[in-house]
């Protein structure tokens, strides 16, 4: 398991793995308007080979989460607006579902899908 993200509670520590967060990001990203695929870096493709979502890297900054995701967007959309909406939605869902504060979401538009 990679870096665990911890929360303290009255009853003890709660840890949430990077894999768990990556799954939330992956589920959220495919519902985001304009996103037609995820694209992994070499590291991402290795992750996929191990059954983990591709194109997503989860990091930690103090107790805050940082997220990098690589997406493929449909041709003909306003890329800046799509990326900004994806970032907002991912940060919102991760905070809502894990309770962990999100420091940053970097959305990389790695490719554009053309043709119908």
């Amino acid at each position: 398991m990679e870096a665990a993200h911890a929360l303290s509670s009255r009853l003890g520590r709660i840890t949430i793995s990077s894999e768990a967060i990556a799954q939330i990001v992956a589920e959220t990203a495919v519902e985001c308007y304009g996103v037609v695929g995820m694209k992994g870096s070499l590291r991402g493709r290795l992750a996929r080979a191990r059954g983990r979502p591709s194109g997503i890297e989860i990091g930690r900054d103090g107790r805050e989460v940082t997220i990098d995701l690589h997406v493929v967007v449909e041709y003909g959309l306003n890329l800046a607006e799509v990326a900004s909406s994806v970032g907002n939605r991912v940060a919102y869902e991760v905070e809502r579902l894990t309770g962990l504060p999100v420091r940053a979401v970097e959305v990389h538009v790695d490719d554009v899908r053309t043709g119908k």
């Binding site: 985001c32 308007y33 003909g76 306003n78 607006e81």
Partner: peptide, 18 residues
């Protein structure tokens, strides 16, 4: 519509307009 699209709903609308 594409250039002026604002937010998630604006992007969807730009596709509808197109």
């Amino acid at each position: 519509a594409l250039m002026g699209a604002r937010g998630n709903s604006g992007v969807i609308l730009s596709q509808i307009v197109r």
